[in-house]
């Protein structure tokens, strides 16, 4: 799993690529919680995620809950087919705000 963090229009964009699985999800969790702690809207780009498992999903849920608790926001953008399937299985596709592109996500996050 690789990741990349950038700032744009007052929001943090964190992109993951490769496999978010038992091996890599502890790192993904750490990165997500650090992003959320910066008190900016967080966009998680899942376009390059080939595989995400239940532990990866759990990290996303934990980050979402932490963000909401602190009055912040976290949304998913450009969710790959593989990641969307797992979100559907977990019935979390309606819990997360999901945007089709980074631009669309930024608009939602800053409006």
């Amino acid at each position: 799993m690789e990741h990349e963090i950038s700032e744009r229009d007052g929001a943090l964009i964190v992109g993951f690529s490769g496999d978010v699985d038992l091996q890599s999800s502890p790192e993904a969790r750490k990165i997500l919680l650090q992003c959320v702690a910066r008190k900016m809207p967080v966009l998680v780009d899942l376009s390059a995620v080939n595989y995400i498992d239940s532990s990866g999903i759990a990290s996303l849920v934990e980050a979402l809950q932490t963000a909401r608790k602190g009055g912040g926001s976290l949304m998913l953008v450009s969710v790959s087919e593989a990641a969307l399937r797992v979100l559907e299985l977990a019935r979390l596709d309606k819990v997360f705000t999901i945007s089709g592109s980074i631009e669309e996500g930024l608009e939602k996050a800053t409006s």
């Binding site: 239940s54 999903i57 759990a58 934990e62 977990a90």
Partner: peptide, 8 residues
């Protein structure tokens, strides 16, 4: 978080 695997 957690406990999802068996459900999947």
């Amino acid at each position: 978080p957690g406990g999802l695997g068996t459900h999947f």
